[in-house]
């Protein structure tokens, strides 16, 4: 399998006034195409910080990050925006849909910035909506959708551009257990279709859906284990 993500000795130092804080202290790991990775760890261990770097929303203080073979370090903000648009899909804990905007238009949004014509956008967005099982809810605003449905819209939005990786930071953090199962079922089925997923979670049973668990502690990886019973082999 080809390597989609390769982190080598990533460090991230935050400077606040005269104080310095090293949130990531040399993180290295590779993710191959088609993997489903769960990132675990205590609060403040650096999970979100590494997700932001993986998502090209933040740049590491030092270290090398190759995304799809391309070195992300030293890119301009416009190039990073392009990478986020074309190679990455984001799913957030708080859904982060645009208010008072129909679901389908939320899903279309990455395609708007990709410069697609409105007809093609609509077609792709409808397909993504179908993929997450939300056909028929295209015109509902976020206020007219349940939490699980909102997260499905967000997943459709992350999918719509055929990204190399979907990055999800605590995607089930705001959901109850039944809805969590639904969303994780959706992630599993997407992963079976060959989509690479990296997901942060606090819960072990959520992490169990992934084929690989990486655990952080104080800005370092303390364990990286493969489970056999889930993923493609199940």
């Amino acid at each position: 399998m080809s390597v989609v993500i390769s982190l080598t000795d990533i460090r991230r130092v935050f400077t606040m006034g005269d104080q310095q804080f090293e949130a990531l202290k040399g993180v290295s790991f590779d993710v191959s195409s088609g993997e489903f990775v769960a990132i675990m760890g205590a609060s403040g261990s650096g999970k979100s910080t590494s997700m932001n770097i993986l998502g090209c929303l933040d740049l590491p203080t030092s270290g090398r990050y190759l995304l799809d073979g391309i070195d992300v370090g030293g890119m301009t903000t416009n190039q990073l925006a392009d990478i986020r648009n074309k190679k990455l899909g984001f799913v957030f804990q708080g859904f982060n849909l645009l208010a008072r905007t129909p679901a389908v238009e939320n899903v279309e949004l990455p395609l708007v910035y990709a410069g697609l014509a409105s007809k093609d956008r609509r077609k792709k967005a409808m397909m993504a909506m179908e993929q997450v099982g939300l056909s028929g809810k295209e015109n509902n605003h976020s206020g007219q959708l349940s939490g699980g449905q909102q997260q499905r819209v967000a997943i459709a939005r992350a999918l719509v551009n055929d990204p190399a990786v979907i990055l999800a930071d605590e995607p089930t953090g705001n959901l109850d257990s039944t809805t969590t199962e639904e969303i994780m079922g959706l992630f599993t089925s997407l992963n079976r279709q060959g989509i690479t997923i990296i997901m942060v979670t606090h819960e072990h049973d959520v992490a169990a859906y992934a084929g690989r668990q990486i655990t952080f502690k104080d800005g370092r990886i303390i364990s990286d284990t493969q489970t056999i019973h889930t993923g493609k082999t199940a």
């Binding site: 416009n78 986020r84 648009n85 990455p110 910035y113 551009n161």
Partner: peptide, 16 residues
């Protein structure tokens, strides 16, 4: 601000 953040995460450039 949050909407701007979403748009940027999704691929909006500064100029957009």
């Amino acid at each position: 601000t949050r909407e701007i953040g979403i748009r940027m995460a999704i691929g909006a450039k500064k100029n957009d």
